[in-house]
Nucleic acid binder design. Sequence first.
DNA 1: CCCTATCGATTTTTT
DNA 2: ATCGATAGGG
Length: 809
Amino acid sequence: MSDPIKPVVVGSQAAGGGPTDDLVDGLNEPQREAVTYRGPALLIVAGAGSGKTSVLTRRIASLLRSREAWPSQILAITFTNKAAGEMRERVRGLIGDTAQGMWISTFHSACVRILRREAEQFGFTKNFTIYDSGDSRALIKRLVKEHEADAFGLTPASVQGRISKLKNELADAESYARTANLSDPAERIFVELFADYQRALQRANAFDFDDLIGQTVYLFRAFPHVADVYRRRFRHILVDEYQDTNHAQYALIHELTRPPGAEGAEHGGGMMIFDAPTGDAASLTVVGDSDQSIYAFRGADIRNITEFERDYPGAKVVLLEQNYRSTQTILSAANAVIGNNFDRKDKKLWTDRGAGDPIIGYTGYSQHDEAQFVADEVEALRRRDIPYGEMAVFYRTNSQSRALEEILIRAAVPYKIMGGTKFYDRAEIKDALAYVIAVANPADELSVRRILNRPRRGIGDVTETSIARYAADEGISFRDALANPSALGVGPKIQQAIAQLDAVLAEASAIMLPPSGEVAPPTAVTEGLNVLLNKSGYLDALRRSKDPQDEARVENLDELVAVTREFARNNPEGTVLDFLTEVALVSDADDLDDASGVVSLMTMHTAKGLEFDAVFVTGVEEDLIPHRISAGEPGGPQEERRLFYVALTRARKKLHLSLAMTRAQFGEVTAAMPSRFLQEIPHDLIDWRQSPGDVNSRGGTQSRALNARRPGGGYGGSGGSRYGDDLVPLPRREKPAGDIAKFANRIPAKVRDNGELELAPGDRIRHDDFGEGRIDMVTGEGAKRVAHVRFDTAGPKKLLIKIAPIAKL
DNA sequence: CCCTATCGATTTTTT
DNA sequence: ATCGATAGGG
């Protein structure tokens, strides 16, 4: 078939024995087609683990190698920066350094790049900054307060959410006002807030996350000649994770894939169309899997992919259904679960790798017990030569990571949390960056206000307001008002403090923003940051503080300085704005850098696109997955099912599903029920170490993890450890023969649920373990109802009524 | 203007 | 349980 020795390639045809041969080696037929098909539009429906990244990189490589495209004509959009980096590396691995000059980036990064070039077209300058959600929440919070909008039930969070949603739909305050019911005062206020917010952003020379996309679309629509530049430039556009694009992103792609020049010609503009091929629209390749659409909550529209063929008539569709990642057992479970979503195109993943091991299930008494199972199992797998770096623990909500962390620390399991409280969300880091922004983009009032009294300078609300008023009166910026403290009408001490701050900012400015034309040295960002942190007194204040946490804050700032050095090393030409951009756009999944060699903990959302030898999906309970809030939302439970599906399909060899019978939240213990999704998995695929039925029949609500645990011991069986301390705990718990019929995997249906049981003080009850007793009182409500019982022999106990093995006498 | 104590809400997922 | 916001005293 293919020559072992690659001949020197002369022709440039992709088809028939061309230079693409080695790029399709080892691919199956649909994959091969996805790499070699040429046409205006291609949809690759790529099931989980079907090798889509490989296909995408080879497709790019083949375009380049056959000279169908120059690197600069390629725009590839990925979901995270990390994925972009990997794709770039893999393309380089295939065809070498000729891959330089491609745009491989996220939607957001690509838009920043475009906006920096074109910002001047519409009222921004190219040193605009980017507001993350925390920044925009702070701004919205101030506006809500100013408008006293809380009186109308508008909270900062709800306003932010609605604005974001509208922006994803490419609506602005004006267009929204046209459709809104303005006789409702709350609606009127909201429209005002929206408009004010947008004005504030513009004045601050800043974009929020949603604007990065939306304003780029606006730019393309308002200035067709600008759009044409990019339409001519990008001849091949590839979009990964297309099922998670929202309307704005969809529109952006649409703008880019129009034929260039069309509009200019219509308007009679003297377009210069002498490059013949540039009259055509760019070719578009999208890759996605509607079963993995998990971002509808932030505006992702599954129809973008389901209706692709309608949007791009004549589009070629390729289906990748063979899975190269997981065992058949894992796939069967995943297929069974996703099959319960009714509105999907049926698609069944298959593999030829064999059944593999059964899925392991475990039911803990508490989330700590569950975490202990994870820790023990991780250690057991480690002893069987699965590296820590090949294991991952998933959960639905970030708050679930706490218990896991506690136990993993205790068990000395090295781990890393992806996302969660992120480095760049820490207060001290945001402060430091606000200093930098105050220098790089002085129009950004929010940042200047933020650093005004950090460290404490004696500048409070009163002074801040007078600065703002002075700035407004003089028609100058908030930042510039700081240069003239004596005019503010504040005390001499405070004037002094303001003057000092102004001087520090000016000094850093001289370092980081050299006069136009000159290029700042690579060290500029590091130096400037150091000046800001030291001369502002910020570091001194932390070092002097007696709060033990402040020591860690100093270390974090040291790390930020290290980040600037690293940045300078990677981007010798990088400006302070490049630095800020990079920092603003890092995502949860991006800081995987040093995650090698440790177990990864993350939400199921963050897990998208990753894969591990061994996966633990925890908290498989009703109200968690599917999450209780999603239950009421249209399409909610279905999206939750997809999320669960994504989680399952991350596993290559070992899949563990665990849950807890009780879970503490808000400090209170509540009873949990197994997730409905568990029942959707064929029962013979799961090998329960401890099934919900087991736990229930044994009764009790106490956590075994923290009490009856011994180092090296196993999970909390009712009798404690039943093997020696240093034994490998894996092949434990032989099922007694007769047990299988009783317990084997027929779990969730028959879990005890005393939810309806009415108990009153004085009632006599019988408990499976504690015997008979009398009710003292009942507290709590619903799933949290607790019976305070005085047992005849066992003494006083508190029991969760919903799950305790009790009966009224 | 700063510090501290109390109260309240908070936990869905994120570029 | 923990974080943040608010209010009242120093």
